[in-house]
Design a binder for these strands. Structure first.
Lengths: 112, 112
DNA sequence: GGAATTGATTGACGTCTGTCGATGGAAAGC
DNA sequence: GCTTTCCATCGACAGACGTCAATCAATTCC
């Protein structure tokens, strides 16, 4: 008869634990949602490895997805503040955002 | 008239870049999806800080969500291999999985 | 000016997700 | 045995998400 993990009285639950700061959680969730898709995670991997900004047309060629879908995914990454776009003539070039905070950088180091 | 980001010929796109290993991406996405929810991220934060396993009823008390929803979220974390459950009498206790790989640990260090 | 190309946007579709109420099963107390 | 408590599962529902075809705006080339 070993001791239980914690003292418990039936019908009596502990007071709620101290949660993380709500703003921090929401910011993290926004980044996590942006990364939680295979296509977008691979896009981030490609961008992190590329010394130059990458043309959208290259992503369209790399993934077996329609051009609007590629554009949609890149927009998600842009809205999350993960990438930046530059227009050169007809072409649109994307690179990792220059102002990624240290936590996001650490995430990318682990993931891609 | 500065040099463009990359040489481009109209109508000609570069060959696709080398993507990350597909299996790695899918595994990462599974974990990211499990973490990309405010409730689940906070659950992970609580579990990571708690030296003891935490009773489900404490989560039910901590979050303004119904008991089935709490159970649903914990099941998601369990399916992703992030947490483990122990049944003690009527109560169910959860803790961080003992066999988290180093990348997942690093993720949690950054996030929660 | 007109044709061609890139890429963003729109609208539509099926699927996945977060949430709840209701139900069910197991353990503990009466 | 019956009731109570905890928790997982089921069924339902609204909203978000990933995808595509069609369209549009901007640019370049003829």
């Amino acid at each position: 008869m070993r001791a239980p993990v914690q003292e418990r009285v039936k019908g009596v639950c502990c007071p709620p634990s101290i949660p993380l700061p709500l703003a921090k959680v929401d910011a993290s969730v926004e980044v996590l949602k942006a990364l939680a898709d295979p296509t977008r995670l691979q896009m981030m991997g490609i961008l992190r490895r590329s010394p130059k900004a990458v043309c959208i047309c290259d992503f369209t060629a790399a993934f077996a997805l329609s051009q609007p879908t590629i554009s949609h995914h890149m927009a998600k990454l842009r809205e999350a503040g993960l990438v930046e776009a530059t227009k050169v003539g007809i072409w649109a070039y994307y690179r990792l955002s220059a102002r990624l905070d240290s936590k996001t950088r650490a995430l990318l180091d682990v993931l891609v």
